[in-house]
Amino acid sequence: MTRFLGQRLLQSIVVLLAMSFVVYALIGLMPGDPIDMMIKSDPRMTAADAQRLKALYGLDQPLVGRYWAWLQAALAGNFGYSRLFARPALDALWPAVQSTVILVGTSFVLALAVALPAGVWVARRPGGRADRWVNLFCFAGISVPPFWLAILLIMLFAVKLGLLPAGGVPTRAGAGIGDHIAHLALPVLTLALLQIGGYLRFMRAAMIEALRQDYVRTAEAKGLSPMRVLLSHALPNALIPVVTVVALGFGGLFSGALITENMFAWPGMGKLIFDSIMGNDFNLALVALLFATLLTLLGNLLADIAYALLDPRIVYAELKP
């Protein structure tokens, strides 16, 4: 297992290095730069101003040279300065990570808390009335556009009923925990509703498959209670494919939820990544995307470890490179 973990960590470093260059190059190859945008919005800026600022921000240098300078500084722990947030890139990143963990993490937990038990429950009687209703709900959740769902919830709970804020974070002085929860409610609900369908369908399918296996029939023949068969025998096996999906979702947690964050003006990672790319904020975009990549790799690693825990037959030490 130790050797396996070492190999995976080494692979992750290589992937991160490759990603850093790819992301830097892609952003650098995009047409226009922040100074071009400044000129369009400020009639008093002259061509001389533009040239001076491009030189100051290093935008007149070749892309590879800029990347090499960034990489050297990054390896020394200096990830550069965010032009959009006017602070070091890491300082701009952390608040967004925290916001995203709160928003996406809560919705992720909520979605799993609903989807996994519901998936197990409906898998017991596929095609039954409950299964049909749950399927309808799932497909609605999967197919509804996040933008539309967000607006719908805002219009219902914030505008018509006036029960919840339409989004953002509390701005009132001395806002309490209740205020924070209220502001979180609609974006969490939006994200959870969007995720539940997918996880529930995965759980249901995996459970149906597991319930068809011989060992389940054997367990039933041994006279075990239906609940014990379900939870102790079928569920652990059904969880293996679900863990893969959940682990990938874990990585996605930290890249945020762009549309939902935008609709609810939630200052999270999705919005940060989008803004930094659109604003040609190289340093911030790089740090944010690399962080999301790192977490995705970590999520996959956790999934692999979880396999071993769920299925004793999986032993990574025996894998050959």
Binding site: I151, I154, A158, V159, G162, A166, G167, G168, M263, A265
Partner: peptide
């Protein structure tokens, strides 16, 4: 669109 919804909700 969200801006408009925020106005209507009083936020």
């Amino acid at each position: 669109v969200a801006l408009e919804a925020n106005l209507l909700s009083g936020a």
